[in-house]
Simulated scan of single mutants.
Amino acid sequence: MKQYLLAVIEPSVGEPPAPAQMQKIMERVAEFERSAKEAGVWVFSGGLHPPSSATTLRPKGDDVLVTDGPFVEGKEHLGGFTIVQCEDLDAALEWGRRCAEATTLPIEVRPFRW
């Protein structure tokens, strides 16, 4: 079976959902994760702090430069992810669809190379 990344794409601009709406989203995300675990496809998942918490390491010659913040500024950023193990891309896309419904955000589905 192949492993796939379900990347949660969050907007970098605008207001976050109201607390009551966020609570409903988190309940749906918990249900999505429970379903994935029960189906035996869940490998790992996690949410990320905002891009402002990032540190970027950039090789330059024989050195590595360390800078605060993300590699690039953008209108969207990686907000979290789930790794699933599925028979094929169609199955991974179905889990990606379920993740999108739970989070109400775009989900990028990508296979690992191995």
Rank of each mutant, 00 (worst) to 15 (best):
H49G: 12
E33T: 14
K75Q: 06
D90L: 13
I107W: 13
L89Q: 07
L78K: 11
P51T: 01
H77W: 14
R28N: 08
E15P: 03
A39D: 12
V13T: 10
E27K: 09
V72E: 10
V109T: 14
I25H: 01
V64K: 00
K24F: 00
L5R: 03
V41F: 07
I9F: 00
L5A: 12
R113Y: 05
E87R: 09
T56P: 00
Q85R: 14
P51W: 08
L5W: 12
C86P: 07
P17G: 01
K37Q: 15
E15S: 12
V29F: 05
K75R: 09
D88R: 14
E10A: 10
L65G: 10
P17R: 09
A30L: 05
V72L: 15
F32N: 11
R98T: 06
Q3I: 03
T56W: 02
T104F: 02
R58D: 03
P50N: 02
M1W: 03
A7P: 05
F32M: 14
V41C: 11
D68F: 08
A36D: 05
D90M: 04
T55C: 00
R34I: 04
R113M: 12
E38F: 03
P11A: 07
G14H: 11
P51N: 07
P106D: 10
E10G: 00
P19V: 02
C99F: 14
A7C: 11
P11N: 15
I25V: 15
F112C: 10
F44G: 03
L57E: 01
G40D: 09
A39G: 05
I83K: 15
E15F: 08
Q23E: 15
P16C: 07
E31G: 02
L5K: 03
L78V: 08
A100E: 13
Q23C: 00
D62K: 07
D62V: 00
W42I: 04
A20Y: 03
P50E: 08
V43Y: 05
P16L: 15
H49I: 01
R113I: 02
V43R: 15
P50R: 09
L93M: 15
E73C: 10
I83T: 14
T103V: 01
